[in-house]
Amino acid sequence: MKRIYVVGTADTKGEELDYLAAQIAALGAAPVRVDVGTTPAGIAVEISAAEVARHGADTTQAELASGDRGRAVAAMADAFSRFITTRNDIAGIIGIGGGGGTSIVTAGMRELPLGLPKTMVSTLASGDVSPYVGVSDIIMVPSITDLAGLNRISRVVLSNAAQAIAGMAAKPARIEDGRPAIGLTMFGVTTPCVTAISEQLRDRYDCLVFHATGTGGRTMEKLADSGMLDGVIDITTTEICDLLFGGVLAAGEDRLDAIARTRLPYVGSAGALDMVNFWAPETVPVRYRERLFYQHNSNVTLMRTTANECCQIGQWIGRKLSACEGPVHFLIPEKGVSALDIEGGAFFDPEADAALFDAIETSLKPAPNRRIERLPLHINDPEFAQAAVAAFLAIAKQ
């Protein structure tokens, strides 16, 4: 039987955990209370903190007994993230917590598949929740008052959260589209290309387009790792620029690693590798103040990558793709990599582009399943989109 996991620190949030579990049970669902506290529980639970901790690293018990709260919280977060992936009876998961509890519970939630209902009632939910949500689909609910005993506000918040998680668990979403799914990456400056590719493939594939904002690329690769994608058309690899040169829309160091792990058919390109993203002009690091910029809007400032930076970007991409054993086809648009990198455009720089393309070519280790193709086209030319579609259909058959 599938159950709803109700997770929190039973040493400090026992009253709230009991109340939340009771609300879920009253709705006809089956709650199971999980303690992730670092000191003895104040209520009875179905799954103890000791059981959770047993799934941690060899040092977990020592960290929990260290007397250092930060080390104990980190150890329990690691243990819970390992524990939760061993469970096969989760219909949904709901957590409650302050700073420590939110860190512990969401660490486990992020390990669960996308689509499985996840709700976190937190004192931190009205601030920047990106460290807790990551690229998962966790629903963050502000607790309004602190979780320090029940009151007229917290009862309402917890009751509403119980109804939300029970409803989602009772009627899980169904994916009825029978087409295989592919992930595509897009930026405003590569929109014509990616839109054309999607239109040409939509009859055969469910095209999931991700905005290449750092989070977009990480989300796409999480789906790849989760077995929810059948291929990737990574036209817009711009997140790598921000990673290497301090931009605000950076990929993680593991960008492209999911392609290597899953061996999915991969068509890539150099979309928007001519730019690093910053917020408003005053946020640009001092070391870059004399560079070439384009004001995308009042809150986004784009910086043109230099030939030297493009060389580093190309080497990074070549090294990553050399680790891929699945089919890889990388397309180089010789007439420009974005809407700004075009003759007469603000970022048109053939020398920088040449450095980028040469670095990719020389860094990618030759293999029968890895191919680089230069095209005398701009990335937004209709013919480039057609070439990307043809390349993907060819390797998808392998």
Rank of each mutant, 00 (worst) to 15 (best):
V135N: 13
N299L: 11
S159A: 15
E16F: 06
H211L: 05
V135D: 15
R204H: 08
D203M: 02
L375F: 11
V32N: 03
A65Q: 15
G101P: 10
G345L: 12
V129L: 04
A166T: 15
A396H: 12
V156Y: 05
K365G: 00
F392G: 03
I43P: 06
I317R: 07
K13I: 03
L244K: 14
T145C: 09
I317L: 15
R33E: 01
G99A: 14
A352P: 07
G318S: 11
A22R: 14
G101F: 12
A354E: 14
G37E: 07
T213A: 02
L114G: 13
V36M: 09
V157Y: 04
S126V: 11
R179C: 05
Y288Q: 01
L116W: 11
R54H: 13
D203R: 13
G97A: 10
L17S: 08
A367G: 13
R69I: 13
V129G: 02
R374S: 12
L356V: 07
G149C: 11
E343C: 11
G178Y: 01
D242L: 09
G100F: 12
I313M: 15
A396L: 01
I372D: 05
P281M: 05
I233G: 02
G217K: 07
E282K: 09
R263W: 00
A30P: 01
V189M: 14
I379T: 09
M220W: 00
D242S: 10
P327S: 09
V276L: 00
I4W: 02
V389N: 05
P265G: 04
L114S: 14
K171A: 13
L364T: 08
A41K: 07
L273D: 07
Q61L: 06
S322T: 14
A352K: 07
A196M: 06
L393G: 01
K118L: 09
K320C: 09
H55A: 15
P350C: 09
P31R: 01
H296N: 07
A57E: 14
T238S: 15
A173L: 14
L393F: 00
I90L: 13
G345F: 12
G271V: 04
V7Y: 05
G247D: 05
V337P: 09
A391T: 03
I47H: 03
F293G: 03
V276F: 03
G98P: 08
T9S: 15
S338V: 13
V73D: 09
G183P: 05
G127A: 12
Y19M: 04
L184H: 00
A57K: 15
D137L: 08
P350A: 10
A50H: 11
F83D: 06
A354Q: 14
A173I: 07
N299G: 07
L356T: 08
K118N: 08
I233E: 02
D18S: 13
M220S: 00
A161G: 03
G227E: 10
T119H: 12
A25D: 07
A394L: 10
T236P: 06
A346H: 14
D58Y: 00
I90W: 04
A272G: 02
E351M: 06
W316D: 06
P131I: 08
P131M: 07
E111K: 15
I342K: 13
